[in-house]
Design a protein around this nucleic acid. Structure first.
Lengths: 332, 332
DNA sequence: ATGAAAGCGCTAACAT
DNA sequence: ATGTTAGCGCTTTCAT
C-alpha cells in the first residue's frame, strides 16, 4: 500500500501539500492540485484511516451496543443509525450485549479502547452507572429510564400505553390483561403506568393481578396462558413484540376465537406481523426517527461537548387493524 | 486519558516494560509486573487501540457488508458473525449496502481505508470484481455464485430446493409454482435448478412458466397473484422468506383454503413465521453455522494468506409443519 | 531482564 | 503558497 510519502515523491511536492489537497486543509494552487491528484490516482493511494485517527484524535467511528440484533425492533434501530451515521461520514462498530450486563460493560470498555468518538447504547438494564465514568459521549436509546444526566432518546411509553389501553376501552373491553416481559425495565414499568392511567381515567379499578410479567424466555407462553385462564380477560395488551407472539400462542392453545372471544393489541409494528390473520393492531414505535435522532444527538454532542444533556421523547402511533373486536356484553 | 508513558513514569520503568507486561511480549520479572499493574490500575489506563493498530498494522476489526439488516435472514447471520468475531478478539464494522452495488463499492473502499483486517460481504450481485482488486482478505457469504477465486460460504441451494420440491412431490403435488425474487442472483437460479432436478427425477415435465420472478418490491404480490390465477398450482414454493409473505398475501386475496386448496413451502426459517397458522413448512438454512463459518474462514485466511481459496457449502434442513397438505386428486 | 529509540502514516504548527 | 518537522501512542528492534 502506498503512503502519503510515495504520493509526495511522485508528485514532487511535500507530504503537507498532499495532505492539504486531500483533506482541504489549506489552499493549494490548481496546478499542484492536479499533479497531486494524478499521483494519487496513479498509485491508487488511499489514506490510512488509522494514522489519520491517531493524529487527529478522531476515528469517525461510533460504537453501538444492542441487546439482540435479531429482534426486528432493534434491527430497525440499527438500520436507521447506520444509515444516518454513514451519511454523516461515520462508521459503526456494532456489538451485541445479549442482554448480559457484564458483557455490556466489557464491550463498552473495548469500544472505548478502540477510541470510538461516541457510543449509542440500548442498555440491558436501567441506569448503567459505568457509562458515566467512561469519559466518552454516550447516548442512551430506548431503555432510558433511571437517572438523567445522559443524552437519551426514546418513546413516550406512558402515553403510548395509555393510548393503546384507551383504544381497548373504547371498544368496550373492561378486563384487559397486560402482558409484560419484566418489570425490571423502566420502559415496561412506564407502559404499565400508562395502562393504569387509562383505567383510572375511565374510572375503572386498576387490578395489579391483571399485569403479568411473563419473563423473556420460552416459558413466557405458559405464564401467559395460565394468566388468561385464571383471569378470563376480553382483551390482551402485549407490551413488546415478542409478547405478541406469546399471546398468539396462548390464544391458540386455549382454542379461543380470535378476535371474537379475545382481542389482542400489540406493541411494536413489524413487517412479519402480517403473517397473522386477523391483522394485528399495534402501538407503533417510530423506528427510523428513533435511530436517526439517537445518531444525530450523538453527533451534536460531539460538536458541542459542554451543553446540558438532552432528552428526546418521540410519540407513538396506533395502527388499528383487525385483532381488536368490539366487545358487546360489558362485564360489570 | 493516561498513556503508556504515564504508566511508565508512575511505575518507574520504561514504556517498553509496560507494553510487555500488557501485551505479554517478553518476560518481565514478577516484581516489575506487579508495580506496572498497580500503576495501570491507579491511573485507570487503557491502551489506545488506534496507536496499537498503527504500529502493529492490525486493527482487530472485520468489515461486514449486508444488503439489509432488517431481514431476519441477514440479521441472523450478523448475529452469528458478531459473536464469533467477538470471542476471537475482533470487532465488527457493520455497513448496509441497501442492495445498491455502487453503495457497496463505496462502503468497501471506506472500510479498506479504515484498515479492517478483512471483509465479509453478502454481495448485492454475483461476482463483484472490484473485491479482487482490493488487496484485502474477503469472504463472500450467501450470494456466492459467479466465479471462484474467493473464499466463500453458502448453502447448497440446488440440493435444498430439490429436497423441498421432492417433499412437495411426495405429498402428491404435481403443479408446483416456484416463486422466485429475481433470476439475477445465482442463488435463486440454483434454487430453480434444484426444483427442475426434482421434477426431472420424478419424470415430470419442467415448465418454465411455473417459475415466476416476482421482483423484490411491493408489486411482487400482484405478480404472484396473477401467476397463481393463471396456472392454478396445488402448491407454492417460495424461494425466499420475503416471498413466503408474498405467497400468504396472494393466497388470502384469492380466498383459497390454506393448505387445503393450496399448499405453501417456504425458504428460510424465522421466529416470526409462527404467527402464521397453519404453521409454515420451510427449508431451513443454518444461520448460526453460516455466520460462524464465514468468520472463521476469514480468520483462517488472515493466519494463512497464501492458501488456496476455500468454499464451504452447508446443507439445509427441511422443517415439515402444517402448510403443506396431502394432494389427493393427482392431476394428469 | 530491562531500557533507549526508531518509526507506523498522518496532521498541524511553524517556517519561509 | 508551499515545505519542514514534531509528534499522536504504541510495538519492536537494538543495546546493555
Amino acid at each position: 500500500m502506498p503512503t502519503i510519502k510515495d504520493v509526495a515523491k511522485l508528485a514532487g511536492v511535500s507530504i503537507a501539500t498532499v495532505s492539504n489537497v486531500l483533506s482541504g486543509g489549506r489552499y493549494v494552487s490548481p496546478q499542484l492540485r492536479g499533479t497531486v491528484l494524478s499521483a494519487v490516482r496513479a498509485l491508487g493511494y488511499m489514506p490510512n484511516g488509522v494514522a489519520q485517527s491517531l493524529r487527529s484524535r478522531r476515528t469517525q467511528t461510533l460504537g453501538l451496543i444492542v441487546p439482540d440484533i435479531t429482534n426486528p425492533f432493534f434491527s430497525g434501530l440499527v438500520k436507521a443509525i447506520e444509515r444516518t451515521a454513514r451519511t454523516r461520514g461515520y462508521q459503526v462498530l456494532l456489538s451485541s450485549s445479549e442482554e448480559n450486563p457484564d458483557l455490556e460493560l466489557g464491550l463498552t470498555l473495548s469500544l472505548a479502547s478502540r477510541q470510538v468518538d461516541g457510543l449509542i447504547v440500548i442498555p440491558t438494564q436501567d441506569s448503567p452507572e459505568y457509562l458515566r465514568q467512561l469519559g466518552l459521549p454516550v447516548v442512551l436509546l430506548d431503555r432510558i429510564g433511571g437517572q438523567d444526566g445522559f443524552d437519551r432518546v426514546g418513546v413516550d411509553n406512558i402515553g403510548a400505553a395509555r393510548q393503546g389501553t384507551e383504544f381497548l376501552l373504547s371498544q368496550g373491553h373492561r378486563r384487559i390483561l397486560l402482558l409484560a416481559s419484566t418489570l425490571e425495565l423502566s420502559n415496561i414499568r412506564e407502559r404499565v403506568e400508562g395502562y393504569r392511567q387509562a383505567l383510572q381515567g375511565a374510572h375503572l379499578e386498576y387490578d395489579p393481578q391483571l399485569v403479568v410479567a411473563c419473563g423473556r424466555e420460552a416459558t413466557s407462553i405458559k405464564v401467559a396462558l395460565e394468566a388468561v385462564q385464571k383471569h378470563c380477560p376480553s382483551a390482551l395488551f402485549a407490551a413488546t413484540n415478542r409478547l405478541s407472539l406469546v399471546a398468539v400462542q396462548a390464544i391458540r392453545e386455549l382454542g379461543l376465537g380470535f378476535p371474537r372471544e379475545i382481542s389482542l393489541l400489540g406493541f411494536d409494528d413489524f413487517e412479519w406481523s402480517t403473517l397473522l390473520e386477523p391483522y394485528l393492531s399495534t402501538v407503533v414505535q417510530p423506528l427510523e426517527a428513533l435511530g436517526a435522532a439517537a445518531c444525530e444527538l450523538l453527533l451534536e454532542r460531539l460538536a458541542e461537548p459542554l451543553r446540558p444533556p438532552q432528552r428526546v421523547l418521540l410519540p407513538c402511533d396506533l395502527a388499528v387493524r383487525q385483532s381488536v373486536a368490539q366487545q358487546k356484553e360489558v362485564s360489570v
